[in-house]
Design a protein around this nucleic acid. Structure first.
Lengths: 189, 189
DNA sequence: CATTTTGTTCATTTTTGATTGAACAAACGG
DNA sequence: CCGTTTGTTCAATCAAAAATGAACAAAATG
């Protein structure tokens, strides 16, 4: 699936654009290979954390780029849509994984990869794991209440056993929760 | 003998526990409210680790069941298909998260939830994270070679900077890898 | 053995979530 | 102001993953 975009920008305005455009890369042959490896690496990486492929592609591209890239360049190189690029960059900006950098004679917003990969991991923990843990806590509370009620009304059917399971589960939950800050700290220096 | 005709939940789309439940004949599984909470809890839980919903449903059901349940009972209570149940149970057995238990006068295989939830987490680490880390290592090696080649051929375009990024990424990778056994150990007792 | 009961497999369908692209808005430059 | 460039939004589309259920196999029953 190739996009038919013409790669060469028609507005040949000065050195900075030329550099950006010529990045594959300084015409060096190994560069696009490197780019592909990088993209592959980060696609695989972000997918571990349940993020869409396009996020990995964008970050992977910026990671090996020697210059800051504007959105339309990213669109052209990756062959993804403007929409994907815009949304992806918004997310990555939000994570701090990608940083805007203004380029003198160019009005477009340019982006650079922030090397601190741990932000992506941090995002996973804060936005995916933590909320579930919180909701899980509440849910376990409810379960405990229900099980207690059952035990009272229904002495002989093993509900006491269920009650104990729930308590054990609460311990696990706690343990998991206490692990989060440890991991986060480990990843930050 | 169970009469299949009335029980068969062939009304397709969506899953509704309330509909299926209300069955309090014979074995007592616990209150349907508790069941729903448990299922919700575990569905949410397994989804963090990229496992399908049905896995969480099955485990959640067994977790609050006071008796071992055969597959057809699971199918009936959850309103899922035989296929899903079979595959789900196979996976859960594989994890050791669910354990078969023979019930005297019954030829069907019955199942009990193993309380050790960490098996599911362990599965995530071993099957999802570890392989990616391994492949990532190789990929980073390739990237480093490519970047070195670039640097040699192309002194002034910032490729040295890219080289350093890759090296930094390798450090991150190592750090992440070293974290895995720590977490696994933490979860096992 | 024939028959029933139990469980698995896998081609199809359904669902979910990502991607697209056209319509829109905002910022710019002249 | 007006056209142009740049970037966002969101309904429609598409693709990947999960669920379904019918066909099949294996084991038990009688």
């Amino acid at each position: 699936m190739e996009s038919k975009s013409s790669v060469t920008p028609s507005h040949g305005a000065g050195f900075s654009l030329a550099e950006v455009d010529g990045t594959r890369g300084g015409s060096s042959p190994g560069s696009s290979e490197l780019m592909e490896e990088s993209i592959g690496f980060f696609v695989s990486f972000v997918q571990v954390f349940g993020l869409p492929k396009s996020i990995g592609q964008i970050y992977g591209l910026l990671f090996v780029s020697t210059t800051a890239l504007p959105m339309d360049e990213i669109v052209a190189r990756l062959g993804i849509s403007k929409g994907s690029a815009s949304q992806g960059l918004t997310l990555l900006k939000g994570l701090g994984a990608v940083v805007p950098k203004s380029v003198p004679l160019d009005r477009r917003e340019h982006f650079v990869a922030d090397l601190n990969v741990s932000r992506i991991v941090g995002h996973f923990f804060e936005n995916r794991l933590q909320p579930r843990l919180d909701h899980g806590d509440r849910r376990l509370g409810t379960m405990l209440e229900l099980a207690k009620a059952m035990e009272r009304s229904d002495k002989d059917d093993g509900s006491a056993n269920v009650l104990n399971r729930i308590r054990a589960l609460q311990k696990w939950q706690k343990r998991g929760r206490s692990l989060v800050p440890i991991v986060v700290r480990w990843l930050k220096r």
